[in-house]
Structures are given as C-alpha cells and as structure tokens.
Design a binder for these strands. Structure first.
Lengths: 105, 105
DNA sequence: TGCAAATATGTCAAATCTGACATAAAATTA
DNA sequence: TAATTTTATGTCAGATTTGACATATTTGCA
C-alpha cells in the first residue's frame, strides 16, 4: 500500500494498521472504503460549487454542521446513506455520482 | 400531494405521481429510496447469476440469511452500506453499480 | 405427491450511527 | 489588526441498523 494513502486514511480516522492488515481486507471491503472516501470529497466539492456553508447544508439534510464536517473529512462514523443524502442535497446529479464510482480505482 | 407542490416539482423536471411522491419525500430523499431499491434488485440478480444461496452470500459478508432476504426485499431497516457491501461480494462491478445509478429514473 | 433446500418474516439485544452540543482553530471580512 | 464567520474535533445519549434466532412459507425435485 502506498504510504501517502495510508497516511490519508489514518488521518481521516480509518483503522488501517500496517500494510499486511490493509491487504487483509477483502477487495469488496477495500472498494467500499475507497468509494465512501471519494463520495465524501464530492460532497465538499459540490457544496462549495453551490456556495453553501456546512451549516446551510446541514439544515437541508436535517443534521448539524459538525456532522457535515465529519461527512466531508471521511470520518468512519459516517454512513454511506448519509453521504449520498448529503450529495443529492448539494445538487449533485446521478451522472456525477456514477462518474465518481467509475473513477474509483 | 397538493397542487402547488406538484407544480413546483414538475417545473423542476420531476415526474410526479409515483409512490415516492405520494409518501411526501423530497426529490433528494426520493432519489435515495429509488437508488436503494434498484441496488437491492441488482444484489438479487447478481447473487443468482453467480449461483449463490442467500445463506452463502450471508457468509461472505458476515451476516445471516434473513438479513440477505431483507436486503433483497428492499426492507427499510437495511442501510445503503450493507446493500453495496453485499453487491461487491456478489462480484458486481463498479461499472454495473454506475449503470444502475444512471438508469434510476 | 412428499421432502429438503431455499427464502420470507418477525423479534430483539447489541453494535453502530446520529444530531446536538461545546469548543478550538482556521478562514474571511471590516 | 480585531471581529465575524466558517470549519474541525471530541463527546454522548438517543435513534437506527445489525446479526442471530425462531419459524413460516415457498420452491424445486425425486
């Protein structure tokens, strides 16, 4: 595993451990983590494109600023449901969602 | 659904009159429900394509037969995380996932 | 038909995710 | 610069989701 990527994941709170531990993840598990991370970044991008503060987005999804911050930082306590719910509320399209999925390595 | 709201949705390009609208969901919420429903169906398709029983798939994702049944039936207690985790464990590709998202009405 | 495998449905305690809150830090503005 | 807004981080009780289990129903096949 790329050291830089592990650093990013750990900084985001994912329990990564050493390289062999990461390789111990099944491909399916790794794909899910990768997917959530990329969608989280898209939320941040879209929110900024539409000039929304984290607090404004939080209102739209009935949540709080601190949780939106966690969504965007890829916090492991955040569900895929919440990420996608946030995405759709930033005005992101299904096409953008699909593109991110296709791009996920 | 009240006429004014219908007018607004139609002006925004939404096809009104389906189940989601009846339930009073926002467009974003409706998209999420639609997405989960379609992905749930893909899980069932993929599982059968690969000749897996619900119990066999359950083992792969560390769950149980009854929960796999709930995933595939679109049970509201099932998270998007679990649906996607199941999907990847049936051998579904990111391409298939993206296609379903693009096809969602 | 009868039987076995597969699937569906309801329940529940435990695990996970949640919004809310406090507060710190960073960014933006005056 | 200081003041204001925005974002980040930690915590936690309540809500949601979970696997497991029991059991009913359906399906497929001899």
């Amino acid at each position: 595993m790329d050291a830089e990527k592990r650093k990013q994941l750990e900084a985001a709170g994912w329990v990564v451990g050493n390289t062999s531990d990461f390789l111990g993840l099944t491909p399916a598990e790794a794909e899910l983590v990768e997917l959530k991370t990329r969608l989280a970044l898209l939320v941040k991008e879209q929110r900024k494109v539409h000039n929304l503060s984290q607090d404004a987005l939080a209102q739209k999804i009935g949540s709080s600023q601190s949780r939106v911050a966690k969504i965007e930082s890829g916090d492991p306590s955040v569900s895929l449901d919440l990420i996608v719910r946030a995405l759709f509320n930033t005005g992101a399209t299904r096409q953008q969602l699909a593109q991110v999925i296709l791009d996920s390595e």
